[in-house]
Design a protein around this nucleic acid. Structure first.
Lengths: 151, 151
DNA sequence: ACCGGGTTGTTCAAATTCGAACAACCGCTA
DNA sequence: TAGCGGTTGTTCGAATTTGAACAACCCGGT
């Protein structure tokens, strides 16, 4: 077998910075939403995805793909949100297998209530830490990565 | 209450790119290590951290902090690695509360065996997707974020 | 020597995640 | 219309993570 192409010091620095930043940010966001707003980050993201839809609804599979999570994970979280009254399940006309997750009025209200604090946290965790140039370069690089890893 | 400072489209793009890239990369790395090497990503990171130490050992608390995880999480994973023979626990001279996690020879051998495949995956998941300039800019931005979020 | 506040690591219950297995359904083809 | 490969969403068990609670320990001041 051929020699592995080891990472040089710059590449190692990039990888470590990536791991550290993503863990720290994720940890911070999760903790804030949990403590301050009573939502997990996945749950918040679900509300956002649904609110972005014209009909405020998404098929379970679409939702799972959008969240980059498993179908069972999406099913579990929708169950939680349903119990909390923020989302309801609705059958899908024309496809009896299908299930829509629909944002309720209460869910929309909850999102509107929670969003300002979340945005502030996103700012203090990422956006406001960087200059406009750094932010643009970050977006450029991470978009490239995201596109490169599309299924 | 004052108006929240909503994210403009560039800021939103940055946040979304950050979330998507970190999830996709984490998912890919986790999946690869699990399927190909029989280790979870946290477990792999533990082996790396220990191998980086001159004595190939770390106190439990230091390890947990290095991994950006909880103490109980570190304890759990060390338990797993101990059962697998890759790590052993050792008492800490001069502090009876302390516990060292020590990398065994077997653990070092496992790491050496796994590392090449992991490096290849890191390359294909991040490093090789970017130009040298993009990588440098990414590291700069993420280092800033990491430092900004240090406890 | 003894307290009292802080530290260390483990254990516990609860929450979450995943993949596999599954039943039900879809749509195309013969 | 009967069948068949593929899709959809849920359920299940197993693995993992977290914070709280806890026992044991450290150390500086008295």
């Amino acid at each position: 077998m051929t020699q592995p192409r080891w990472l040089d010091s710059e590449e190692k620095a990039a990888w470590n910075a990536f791991l550290e930043a993503s863990h720290r940010v994720e940890r911070r966001v999760e903790h804030h939403l949990r403590e301050q707003e009573g939502l997990s980050h996945p749950q918040y993201e679900i509300l956002v995805r649904l609110a972005d839809e014209p009909e405020r609804q998404l098929r379970m599979t679409e939702l799972a793909e959008s969240l980059l999570t498993s179908k069972s994970g999406a099913s579990y979280q929708i169950g939680k949100l349903e119990k909390a009254g923020l989302v309801r399940r609705s059958s899908c006309p024309g496809d009896d297998r299908g299930v829509f997750a629909v944002l309720t009025e209460e869910g929309m209200a909850k999102l509107n209530r929670v969003a300002p604090g979340h945005v502030e946290l996103v700012r203090s965790s990422l956006i406001d830490l960087l200059s406009r140039e750094q932010l643009a370069a970050l977006t450029d690089a991470l978009d490239t990565v995201g596109r490169g890893l599309e299924d």
